[in-house]
Write a protein that binds this DNA or RNA. Structure first.
Lengths: 170, 170
DNA sequence: CAGTTTATGTCAGTGTTGTTGACATTCCAA
DNA sequence: TTGGAATGTCAACAACACTGACATAAACTG
């Protein structure tokens, strides 16, 4: 196992940021930061006895109203059975509405109800608040680097999904 | 709910990177990137019928050999019952060794066995490989920004734990 | 020394979230 | 029209988090 230096070949440029130690720090930063990232919504969700899966569903339905179950499935990267359980409770609780497709009656199009939209707002307000504080602390240049590295960390299909969402939203 | 612009007050400087839309992009990037971040170790772990919890324990025991259960507990942020279940299997499978403390016999000090260290190496090689590729893609400046934002995203206690680990390792 | 606190482990129960398997419905194409 | 593909639902199960209660041993405190 190469220790302390990457196996990528050490050119003239400074590649010190690619040492195993640097990479390990990044890995641990990612671990701790993700806990912070989810902490605020998690607290809110716990009171409603929902979990992260509910949050994710609500987020992406809000993001793309009328999306189909299949669509959501490919974004979330879970099995349809797993998603279905979450959707069932959200529909049962009146946060999400499921409409049979007009063109294709096999499809279900998903929408947030007013109540669902309210919860979405609460959750994303909390998450954005932390994000905003972090961005502000770190500054615009750091944010650009942050996004660049995150995008490079994704699998190809995630990058596609991410890009698609940005098209819609920007 | 303010939409499109943060509520922080818009000074003369460019704060466009703090718009709700920008923050949402960051949130989604974080979501997708974390999937990528864990994907490679997850595949390896699945074959051994271990999970992320095992990976985390192995990682931090490797990081701080001889650490106590309590210490690990505060880093991982889970209950002792949850950690104990994981440790029990790892010790039973001969990947982790638990030694009664010499000074304080209540404490258990945790070490990786050779077999445990081998798995740790496999897992972190896989995770580092992706990290290295992402870092290389994004470049040194981006990496600096990446770490800066992640650190700003942590809770105070996580930041402490993270800093402590960096002391040891650097 | 007696009583309390600390560190650890265990048992039982519960909830969320992931999985696979089986199945119903709908669409489409041979 | 019949068979396959796509879409979604229900049931059962496993992993892993949680709480609560309790046991043990060691350390600390008055």
């Amino acid at each position: 196992m190469p220790e302390g230096r990457t196996g990528q070949g050490y050119s003239g440029e400074s590649l010190l940021f690619l040492t195993d130690e640097q990479l390990r720090q990044g890995i641990e930063a990612m671990f701790f930061a993700y806990r912070g990232f989810t902490a605020d919504p998690d607290r809110i969700l716990a009171e409603l006895s929902y979990g992260r899966a509910h949050h994710r569903a609500i987020h992406f339905i809000n993001r793309s109203p009328g999306t189909t179950v299949n669509n959501l499935l490919s974004i979330l990267g879970v099995t349809k059975q797993s998603l279905n359980r979450v959707l069932r409770t959200l529909i049962g609780d009146g946060l999400v509405e499921s409409k049979v497709g007009e063109l294709d009656k096999r499809e279900r199009h998903l929408y947030l109800t007013d109540q669902g939209a309210a919860l979405e707002a609460t959750l994303s307000d909390a998450q954005r608040a932390r994000m905003r504080a972090a961005y502000k602390d770190a500054g615009p240049e750091a944010v650009q680097g942050f996004k660049k590295v995150l995008e490079a960390m994704m699998d190809a299909d995630m990058r596609r999904a991410y890009a698609k969402l940005r098209e819609t939203g920007a």
